[in-house]
Amino acid sequence: MSALPPSYDAHQNYPNDPSKTAYQIPPPQPAYAQPQPGYAQPQPGYAQPQPAYAQPQQAYTQPQSTGYSNAGYGQAPGTHATQPGYSTQFIDTEYASQPKSDDEGLFGASFSNKAIRRAFIRKVYMILFTQLLVTFSFICLFIFVDSVKRWVQENMWFYLLAYGLFLVFYITLACCPSVRRQYPGNLICLAVFTLAFSYMAATISSFHDTGIVLLAAGITAAVCLSISLFAIQTKIDFTMCSGLLFVLVMVLFFFGWACLITFYAWGGSSRIMSCVYGGLAALVFGLFLIYDTQQVVGGRKYEISPEEYIYGALQLYIDVVYIFIIILGFMGKK
């Protein structure tokens, strides 16, 4: 058997004995000192990723300060903004100024993007102008064609049928968000509603002189245009006046019943009561036109969601047609 090499302890105990140091272990210090430069070399390579690691941190903090500040949400409401780039004010004021959400998404902060707002307004008013064009066509047909005028005046049951369709489809579109948001069912329901309401307005117009009807249509266009421009330019927020509108509607409703009872009790209508009722109705629907216009245009406390273009066009259309009927009642004799 071959002899085992002397251990490291033997080398330490007998440094001068050749038999003990035949297999000397290399001095550890030089061998240990050599890898130190090699060990020191990776240190700069290890230190290099640190700036690269610090850079993503800075890039990650930038979207927090820019993206959140643009949206108005610096931190949670009621806390101080402590991140760099934030203001030191409370965020409650900015958060409270945002449009509120209500009625299953009917109102909301929907116009943060100006392109979305412009597309929504354009779509609403294109639908509105189409509806008004259909209504005006019905009115012209009923007042210029004598055979059609006589038929609608002799068959009032068709007017009652149109009135029933008007109520059913109006309640459906106003109270069922799933119907007015689903294409193409929303456009079909709106088309039926528009035809029914156009027939009603044209039937009422057939009982008046042709010149009076055309004059009332022109006055209605001027009044609605001026009211719409006022609603867009004014700093008064009429979307916060829903309670006032409700009170005026209740007054108009019960005053109308009082006029109807007086008509049947006295065997005729009072001109003064008719003028008061007509003036009150014109005031109410003029305020409704301002209210609905500001909701469509946006920039107020309550704004209509971009998905509710059918609802916006529906409300504006009803306001305009009712103002026309009221003005026609003022100017006509029946």
Rank of each mutant, 00 (worst) to 15 (best):
Y8G: 06
D9S: 03
H11K: 15
D17M: 01
K20R: 05
A22D: 12
Q24S: 13
I25R: 15
Q29D: 10
P30N: 04
P30E: 05
Y32L: 12
Y32H: 14
P35L: 08
Q36P: 06
Q41Y: 07
Q41N: 10
Q41P: 04
Q41I: 12
Q43D: 12
P51L: 04
A54K: 09
A54Y: 15
P56N: 12
Q58V: 09
A59E: 10
T61K: 12
P63C: 01
P63W: 13
S65V: 03
S65R: 13
N70A: 03
Q75I: 06
Q83A: 10
Y86E: 06
Y86H: 10
T88A: 03
T88K: 05
T93H: 07
Y95L: 14
A96Y: 11
D102T: 05
D103S: 04
G105C: 04
G108C: 08
G108S: 03
S110T: 10
S110I: 13
S112G: 04
S112L: 06
N113A: 14
K114R: 10
I116G: 14
A119F: 13
F120R: 05
F120K: 06
I121A: 02
K123Y: 09
Y125I: 12
M126N: 14
I127D: 03
Q131A: 04
L133F: 15
V134P: 02
F138L: 02
I139M: 09
L141F: 03
I143N: 08
D146I: 07
D146A: 07
S147T: 14
V148G: 05
V152F: 11
Q153W: 01
N155I: 00
W157R: 11
W157K: 14
L165A: 07
F166T: 11
L167F: 15
L167Q: 04
F169C: 11
Y170G: 09
T172W: 10
A174P: 01
C175I: 14
V179I: 07
R180C: 00
Q182C: 10
G185M: 02
N186M: 04
T194G: 01
F197L: 07
S198A: 04
A202K: 00
I204N: 13
G211A: 14
V213T: 01
L214R: 14
L215V: 15
A221E: 08
A222R: 00
L225W: 08
L225N: 07
S226E: 15
I227G: 01
I227P: 00
I232V: 11
K235G: 11
T239E: 02
C241Q: 08
S242Q: 12
L244C: 03
F246H: 13
V247Y: 03
L248H: 07
L252W: 15
A258F: 06
I261M: 04
T262C: 05
Y264W: 06
W266M: 06
G267C: 01
G268H: 15
S270P: 00
I272L: 05
I272N: 07
C275G: 13
C275H: 14
V276G: 09
Y277D: 10
A281F: 10
G286V: 00
L289D: 08
L289A: 02
Y291C: 03
Y291I: 05
Q295K: 05
V297A: 07
V297T: 08
Y302A: 10
P306G: 08
P306A: 05
E308N: 11
G312A: 00
Q315Y: 08
Y317V: 03
Y317C: 02
I318F: 02
I318C: 00
V321G: 00
L328F: 05
F330C: 01
M331H: 14
K334T: 13
